[in-house]
Nucleic acid binder design. Structure first.
Lengths: 366, 366
DNA sequence: CCCCCGATTGCACACGTGTACGAGTGCAAT
DNA sequence: ATTGCACTCGTACACGTGTGCAATCGGGGG
């Protein structure tokens, strides 16, 4: 007797995964457990939910049998009757994008903490595909939706009314406001970066945007212009160019800037990925960062601190924003009204990619 | 009549998302559609599945009404009866890990192409948590499972028999073989990197491993040792150290190497993230890469090419491996037997972080 | 002794869909 | 005229779970 229990205790690690089923070959259903415990299946259901309506001994017995059989209630059957799947959809542009994956991590974190699962889908920044993906998630009856960098944005409004699936947007790119969103202070952040450059003596500062970032690009450019205006520097149209997200396009845009008669001494990039390509283009021209050209990023992706020179950038608390989005979504799903739009602050992180303006006439400038 | 259709055509973009429901406020069920079409609900079911058992006209009428009502069949109800959810579980260490997110991207890609959804879960490289997460996914009745960098590995075997959920492991870290896995040629890859350094004249080469990468770390170390042996270089125990995944631990390990009486002139890192910290530590000592110390990585994460100096590393086709894992999983799910273990080749990418061995006595060496 | 009440438990249903089977047509073959 | 078949469609289930309600039991108060 004593040896027997000792023996099974030794197997405990295995047991968690094995638990041979004495019935058929398929997974046991609640009725199988009920039969083994000689009770009705509702009693099993209640016992497993710690309902007070079932006696302690019966509950213990049922739980023991369920454990032995490795029984796990089917979430799909439960979802059918409760009309809640305890699942949320998460739409990102692409999981391998460092920005998106950080947000995803925050979302998964708090969802998982509350027993929710996350259905992942990529939109690839394609409005058409984003719409399709939303439909597929709706078909799977997710309880809520988090969408990062949405290109559809306000178009969700009607869907919201009919499907009544709460939606929270992170870093919404659609012009105009959506009901629930978590965004960063784009304008203020870029303004801080620009101010920093101006403080270092730069006067010819370029802005290298991204046509993919509809709204945030617009806002960041606005912050850039605001800083120039307040410093009494004229905004020169030729110094504001943009890429389309692809490294080649960004490098080409930067090349155009460097070939200008009077090239900029500093460039504010739409984000860190842009800055990566910009630095590359600068070096391809035989110039140094920051000695010849200062560069700022935006987002503070994990590798920004590891670059040489380490990137001066604006911190975008992506993971935290993912958490906030999910927390907000939970409030919406539980019916309570919550803050509609959350705007988080952007913090300038000064590192090594920015420096004082070079003595004039360094390169092909006059 | 003509104007009417023209009007609705103009709204087509909106229509996709709106489709007001003329019934209650909840989503329409198949019965609602059946009532509107004056048929039985099985007929609706068949019509929407393009079954030949329903006449073309009836099917068209039903589809039109379903479309108008914005009807989407509930995947959960369907899953209950068909016993297939068209959903796979994906367990990664952490989505914000560049390695994992690349794999995830590959998995999502092919799953999505075939109409499958992906349930995402983080294991945080914790065996206990990994087990819990597997149970939760099983509860949700996923049709299959992809696990990256598993710490449980072969322990899935019993689960496999009972739950009959096909499992494919990517970059399995558990010692010993698992049934279905996709792994990289760790030993050959690291051997190529080491050979490259030896070819550059290096003799004192260190290996900086990672205690988290149980199996791959062992295999890569083996490749390292093999290269040394074949070149007639003694393997010195003091030159093989390891971190635990945290940047601080890696930097500390590298510091120990640099404080050695005869420090290494080159170091093979377990992976790119390790190399990042190593380079940082080297610079903190006032030394340069590769002039004073050559560094190699492993994985070829996207930023490797952007570092200064660009990182010499071993290409790990992570996205492709994710695709392969998912393709293999599809075969398993459809019942066909497939290749058990897939081993992909590793390709050395020579960039700028490795160079010829420095003239002796450069720094505190003798 | 009867009635009522609290504590347990079972019964019957519902959730929304897919599918085997039978029923009802219309038409051609016998 | 009857039979058989191809074609459509509806009926009756089943999937596995949760929950309102009735039923049963035991006990205490009147």
């Amino acid at each position: 007797m004593a040896e027997k229990s000792a023996g099974s205790a030794a197997n405990v690690a295995h047991v968690t995964l094995t638990r041979a089923l004495a019935l058929g070959s398929r997974q046991p259903s609640i009725k199988d457990i009920a039969r083994l415990a000689r009770v009705s299946h509702p009693t099993v259901s209640r016992a497993l939910q710690n309902s007070p309506l079932v006696s302690a001994e019966t509950a213990a017995r049922i739980r023991k049998i369920a454990e032995e059989q490795g029984y796990r209630a089917s979430a799909v059957a439960r979802g059918l009757v409760t009309r809640r799947t305890r699942t949320v959809g998460l739409i990102v542009t692409s999981v391998d994008d460092p920005f998106a994956s950080e947000v995803a991590c925050g979302v998964e974190e708090v969802a998982s903490d509350r027993g929710y699962a996350v259905l992942l889908a990529n939109s690839h920044a394609d409005p058409e595909r984003e719409r399709r993906v939303v439909q597929e998630l709706a078909e799977r009856r997710v309880d809520g939706l988090v969408v990062t960098s949405s290109r559809v944005g306000a178009l969700y409004l009607p869907l919201l009314k009919n499907l009544d699936v709460p939606i929270v947007l992170v870093n919404d790119q659609y012009p105009g406001e959506f009901v629930h969103s978590v965004t960063i202070a784009n304008q203020e952040g870029m303004r801080a970066a620009t101010d920093h450059l101006i403080g270092l003596g730069h006067r010819r500062i370029a802005y290298l945007g991204d046509s993919n970032g509809y709204r945030s690009d617009t806002e960041r450019l606005a912050g850039f212009q605001e800083a120039l205006a307040d410093a009494g520097i004229d905004f020169e149209r030729e110094l504001a160019v943009e890429g389309d997200g692809r490294p080649e396009a960004t490098m080409e845009a930067m090349n155009r800037l460097l070939r200008l008669k009077r090239p900029p001494t500093a460039v504010c990039c739409y984000n860190d990925m842009t800055a990566l390509s910009v630095i590359r283009a600068v070096r391809a021209h035989g110039l140094r960062v920051p000695a010849d050209v200062s560069v700022t990023g935006f987002d503070d992706l994990f590798f920004a601190a590891y670059l040489a020179p380490a990137l001066t950038t604006v911190r975008h608390p992506m993971r935290r924003m993912g958490q906030m989005a999910m927390e907000n979504l939970f409030k919406l799903m539980s019916g309570q009204e919550s803050i509609a739009q959350i705007k988080v602050g952007a913090e300038l992180i000064v590192r090594e990619s920015t420096g004082k303006v070079p003595k004039r006439g360094r390169h092909h400038g006059q």
